[in-house]
């Protein structure tokens, strides 16, 4: 799949932003006034920034309001609703903390659940797609949720939680990669089923429909950079999990905390780039590109 920067930015930033909102909603850290303001501002910048970035890949972004209508069947629609609901609830909860110095725990808990639901619905947009075997697994929501909660804990300064959750997310990430590498072959979709010609013999793409490029090839048959995938996985794992965990284990210093957050952020961006770039869509079979 084409690793569009807007979609990578969206899933990375909003994942972290809603992860932080989750912890804030539960009262970790239990802060009020200016400190709360700064933490909420960071969370909203990331969550809203990510959501705005996601509109850049729309063909007709001015019609985005229509996307809230089909929650009965569409995960994308559900995501929009959860995100807006979560942001509104957490804004009220945050206003209480920042301006009144009071905490409404029930409201915070509802906001925390909605924040997690937003990340879950985002992951289901990908996990529901049978056409991309690598994504079509329960591990995809597990991966998105664990990274979001771990990153949120890191941003919220919950050292012990963040350490444990980062390790967990790292394990899920590795399993997801290893499973993913086998997923396409195991899915049972291949040139023979795509063309229905397998009963005659071995099918080979002889001539594409056009000599030029097209939307399908751009969007679904992305192959650039796959050869560096293993190296990128290592880099991502080190930056996303390894380095932050080491920095968290070291004696606390503000610089270390900042470095841990930055390292984690870059690691997640690389992981998300791979998430898209390595994903094989079945339509590639029709072009002989699988």
């Amino acid at each position: 799949m084409h690793p569009a920067p807007s979609v990578i930015a969206f899933t990375t930033l909003s994942g972290l932003g809603f992860g932080l909102l989750f912890w804030l909603g539960l009262g970790y850290p239990n802060v009020t006034g200016w400190v709360a303001f700064v933490l909420f501002a960071i969370a909203y910048l990331m969550a809203v920034g990510g959501l705005l970035a996601s509109t850049f890949h729309l063909g007709r972004p001015e019609r985005f309001l229509k996307a809230f209508s089909q929650w009965r069947s569409s995960w994308l629609s559900r995501e929009g609703i959860c995100a807006v609901a979560g942001l509104i609830v957490m804004a009220i909860y945050g206003a209480g903390l920042v301006f009144l110095g009071t905490s409404w725990p029930l409201l915070g808990a509802i906001g925390a659940v909605l924040s997690l639901l937003t990340v879950f619905t985002t992951s289901m947009i990908y996990a529901q797609l049978k056409t991309v075997a690598r994504w079509h697994t329960r591990l995809t929501p597990a991966l998105f949720l664990s990274l979001s909660i771990a990153g949120g804990a890191l941003l919220a300064g919950q050292v012990a939680m963040a350490t444990a959750l980062l390790v967990l997310a790292g394990i899920i990430q590795m399993v997801w990669w290893l499973q993913g590498d086998k997923a396409f072959a195991q899915s049972g979709t291949n040139m023979a089923t795509a063309t229905g010609l397998g009963s005659i013999g071995t099918v080979r793409a002889f001539e594409p429909p056009h000599t030029g490029n097209n939307y399908l090839l751009n969007e679904f048959v992305y192959v650039v950079g796959r050869k560096h995938a293993t190296k990128l996985r290592m880099i991502s794992l080190v930056l996303m999990i390894g380095l932050p965990v080491l920095l968290l284990l070291a004696p606390f210093a503000h610089l270390f905390a900042l470095l841990a957050v930055l390292s984690h952020l870059i690691g997640v961006i690389i992981s998300r780039w791979l998430f898209f770039a390595q994903a094989e869509h079945v339509v590639g079979l029709y072009y002989g590109k699988r």
Binding site: L58, G59, R63, L76, K130, L216, H281, V283
Partner: peptide, 17 residues
């Protein structure tokens, strides 16, 4: 249509552009 492209992602046959 907002042009999100998700329907094209979900089509196994490459029938939407």
């Amino acid at each position: 249509c907002i042009g999100c492209g998700l329907c094209a992602w979900s089509c196994p046959y490459g029938a939407r552009e």
